[in-house]
């Protein structure tokens, strides 16, 4: 078991875990009408590591990402980004420190790929050459030919759209990258390509990444740490092998076993640890 998977962080006094983590949720809950999306929950995410929020659809994992961005407001509790409590006054500024990628990339159809990527920078009045330089850097990072960036999203393949979406999320060089089912809409071959590329990009960037998925295989492939959720509650967090070895609940084994036949396909080496 790699060193990072120890239980030590959980034993830190409350004050310090809140302030050390890049993202800290304290007693956060959310209901949609009568339906509980998240039960009151304490969660921390440390800088430089890759987390996967795993669970069936409706377990509250996407809601968790939106809470971190302030896209939905919590019924109770606070969200801290790098120690600051997320509130309307600092919302825009904190959002700029987080990159967000969704399933279909969510590229604005009226803008070209490069306009999509540079949108925030233009709003912040970056100089043209600086934008251009960053565009080239990012295009190289996601392995997209620069010329493709002058196309509209309707002219790009699903995989290309997702790469552009990633570029857009990374434009301001955020501390945190949140990805909601980033591979969910892609066909298998493109998916495998992009999955491998994403992992190498994450290693190069050394950012905190939180990926939402229902796919155990994908979780195993990316995660430094998996957070398994069920019905708005955290069931267990740890590496895949930990989850298999010491399931906190019969549901853990059940959930993983349901997708087990696919597990042999992927590399089973544990990813190298982050900077933490």
């Amino acid at each position: 078991m790699p060193a990072w998977a120890s239980d030590d962080d959980h034993r830190l006094p409350a004050e310090s875990w809140i302030f050390m983590a890049i993202i800290a949720l304290e007693n956060v809950s959310k209901k949609y009408g009568q339906v509980t999306a998240l039960a009151p929950l304490d969660l921390t995410f440390d800088a430089g590591r890759i987390y996967v929020l795993l669970g069936t659809s409706g377990c509250g994992k996407s809601t968790l990402l939106k809470l971190m961005l302030g896209l939905v407001s919590a019924d109770s509790g606070t969200v801290r980004i790098a120690g600051e409590v997320l509130c309307p006054a600092n919302m825009l500024e904190l959002r700029r420190r987080i990159g967000y990628v969704i399933q279909h990339a969510g590229l604005f159809p009226h803008l070209t790929a490069s306009q999509n990527v540079s949108l925030v920078a233009r709003q912040l009045k970056w100089a043209g050459p600086r934008i251009e330089e960053r565009l080239c850097e990012l295009a190289e990072l996601v392995q997209l030919p620069r010329a493709e960036l002058e196309r509209f999203s309707s002219q790009l393949s699903g995989g290309q759209q997702q790469r552009v979406g990633l570029m857009r999320a990374l434009m301001l060089d955020p501390d945190v990258l949140l990805m909601d089912e980033p591979l969910g809409a892609l066909d298998p071959i493109i998916r495998a390509d992009l999955q491998a590329d994403l992992r190498s990009i994450f290693r190069r960037l050394n950012k905190t990444v939180v990926i939402v998925t229902h796919d155990v295989h994908e979780a195993a492939f990316f995660a430094d740490e998996i957070l398994l959720l069920r019905a708005g509650q955290l069931v267990q967090r740890g590496s895949l092998s930990e989850l298999l070895k010491n399931p906190a609940d019969p549901f853990v084994t059940e959930f993983i076993n349901a997708q087990r036949h696919t597990l042999g396909d992927g590399p089973d080496d544990a990813p190298a640890g982050g900077a933490a």
Partner: peptide, 26 residues
């Protein structure tokens, strides 16, 4: 999803309206 991604980018509401929502509704 466009409202959401535009907001998540950290763009101010007026800028989102002028540069994303109105063009998409044009």
């Amino acid at each position: 999803e466009y409202y959401e991604t535009a907001a998540a980018l950290g763009l101010p509401a007026g800028y989102r309206l002028a540069n994303i929502e109105l063009p998409l509704a044009s």
